[in-house]
């Protein structure tokens, strides 16, 4: 939470910020547009669907958090953070978010798919994991 307070323009993707459990992935992403842009659900869901499509995760669109795999959950959180373009995205400890995944490659592919939606990506991790991440 301190990360967010120190960088208010950033969207944080973190294990400590879960999806709303009683909403599907599509609804979790769409509510940001419904609430912040007063879009109706259909229009917001279309945009959310398109973003999930770019991340290759439309299969999980109608699933809820407990039914998601770690990659699907990460993609959902990334989509929720980027449904409105952000200057900075902060990804906190990718290894915690993506257990049992070769996450440097997965992370790189996911960020490349949506790189027009943010200006900078900061990864917060232990210093000994620094060689895992390519500079962006």
């Amino acid at each position: 939470m301190r990360l967010l307070e120190e960088t208010p323009d950033a969207a944080l993707i973190s294990d400590s910020l879960p999806l709303r459990a009683n909403l599907s992935v599509l609804e979790n992403v769409a509510i940001v547009l419904q609430y912040r842009r007063n879009m109706n659900y259909d229009a917001a869901a279309d945009r959310a669907w398109a973003l999930l499509g770019r991340l290759g995760q439309t299969d999980s669109a109608f699933k809820r958090d407990p039914d998601l795999g770690s990659e699907q959950r990460f993609a959902a959180k990334l989509a929720r953070a980027l449904i409105l373009p952000q200057p900075i995205i902060l990804i906190e400890r990718p290894g915690l978010l993506l257990p049992d995944t070769h996450y440097p490659a997965f992370l790189d592919a996911a960020l490349t798919a949506v790189e027009d939606l943010f200006e900078q990506c900061w990864i917060v991790d232990y210093t000994w994991n620094e060689p895992l991440y390519a500079p962006r």
């Binding site: 967010l4 969207a11 910020l17 879960p18 999806l19 509510i31 609430y35 953070a81």
Partner: peptide
């Protein structure tokens, strides 16, 4: 029950971080 679980699992902070006011939403 739903609200207490939302609070315990940090879901309220999560939607707040996404720019959605939990009180209003």
């Amino acid at each position: 029950t739903e609200v207490v679980l939302m609070n315990i699992h940090n879901e309220i902070q999560a939607i707040e971080a996404a720019g959605v006011d939990p009180n209003r939403f």
